[in-house]
Design a protein around this nucleic acid. Structure first.
Lengths: 250, 250
DNA sequence: CATGTCGATTGATCTGTGTCAAGGAAACTT
DNA sequence: AAGTTTCCTTGACACAGATCAATCGACATG
């Protein structure tokens, strides 16, 4: 089911071969510690649509996304589903100190993950406080993101939800791409309409209708089904319902 | 505005005078480290309804709730509000490494907090890895709670939302109280209908109606406006939409 | 005692989003 | 090339929850 692959040559955000090194875990480790990390890490890749771990599965590793996009989703007994995590390159999955995954983890595009067996990783954490500190920072960032997401789920309209999601994806993508003139941003939607609906707490029909509405109003342009162009990013931001001035770095 | 008080004699969940000691931060510290923590801590109390910190205020301390209940709330430009954190005794507020609070922090009942100036607390964290590790655990727990909450906001019906909130409050309270026979639980609602609506992403009218409906259906009993009795906790759980078997410790 | 305030309840009506259903475009299979 | 599947769009209608409004009880204040 999961095939282990050789170390990928490049990842969009990795310096060297793995984002763990510079962002996810170990920005401040010394050489010897880095070598220890290198020794216990390995790579796995998954195809688009593949389930990485089912809820309540035993997860014996923690990992960092190298390329691609994965999601965390909760399911209710009657099948209602809510996405609770969107994992982009350099994001971290897995909780040291817990045996089983509490959510379904799914690859929505082809995904390469950099994995560490839990046991040696935990031992390593005890020896090198930097790793724990870095993990704390990352977890706090995730908590902030979750709280933004709660505002979206609890109080935003369908249109605001769509605009917010597009803004998030555009922003993440924009940092990778050469910026086109005057805030024009283009990117490929990495999610199906259904995945978007699970992110936003909507039905996929409503997602489709609101995307059409934003297109009709000139906020976005669409080629094919997934290629999005935002001609004026500020205008998109106005549709999100968020504070425009300042943003989240106030 | 904030008056500093002498050390309170007892807190419901504190061993000694402060929950920091045994749960929040420092379960595994040795005596000397505990003494250091004691030296930099102080207490503050707030009255019900009082705002502890406004969004974007400078927060120069981190703190742990000793008694009472506080909330974190986000507000949109047009006034829509979403609660994003519910702080019960022994919960932690504040982020080491950040200057300003990103949310409104409000006392919904009278609250006593055990505070640490941020600077010395951060220095202490560097010296004693246990504190950082404990903080990481707590933050991961909060992240899990936030994700449960996202499922509630995105996918649950109004009735399920109310039942879920009552179950959460009942569970937190039940651990303090002597359990009445056969799963009967009584507790005082610590939130107004409005605060409940901000927690749940509903209007306060809908909250009121759904509480009335649960009462009519015999799931709960109410005396006065705030005193709730749950005659059969399992029946309440069935209304939450969550997996009944296993719960969250699967 | 009258008056005002705050929190809560309840009713009437409106509306945004869900539900159900039909159909289209592109990619893949045989 | 025809059929199948997957993903998406659009329409018609229903309904859960929002909105607007009136009222109530408890409590405080002058």
């Amino acid at each position: 089911m999961n095939r282990t692959v050789s170390i990928p040559k490049t990842g969009p955000q990795s310096c060297g071969d793995c984002p763990i090194r510079h962002r996810a875990v170990c920005a401040r480790c010394d050489d010897e510690e880095l070598v220890q990390l290198e020794e216990i890490k390995f790579y796995r890749s998954y195809q688009a649509g593949q389930v990485i771990a089912w809820s309540a599965d035993r997860m014996d590793f923690v990992a960092s996304v190298v390329t691609g996009i994965a999601t965390l989703t909760q399911t209710m007994e009657d099948g209602r589903r809510q996405m609770v995590g969107l994992l982009l390159p350099s994001d971290f999955v897995g909780r040291p100190g817990r045996e089983t995954a509490p959510y379904d983890v799914t690859a929505t595009t082809d995904v390469v993950m950099c994995c560490f067996r839990k046991k040696p990783f935990e031992e390593m954490m005890l020896r090198t406080p930097h790793i724990g500190q870095r993990l704390l920072e990352m977890t706090l960032d995730e908590l902030d993101a979750a709280r933004e997401w709660m505002l979206l789920l609890g109080r935003k309209t369908a249109r605001e939800k769509i605009a917010s999601l597009l803004a998030i994806l555009a922003r993440r993508d924009a940092s990778l791409q050469l910026r086109e003139p005057e805030g024009v941003i283009s990117f490929e939607l990495p999610l199906t309409r259904e995945a978007m609906s699970e992110y936003l707490g909507l039905t996929l029909e409503t997602v489709s209708r609101q995307i059409s509405a934003l297109r009709k109003d000139g906020i976005i342009e669409i080629r094919g089904k997934r290629q999005i162009t935002v001609p004026d990013f500020d205008r998109l931001l106005e549709e999100t319902g968020d504070d425009t001035d300042g943003g989240f770095l106030v």
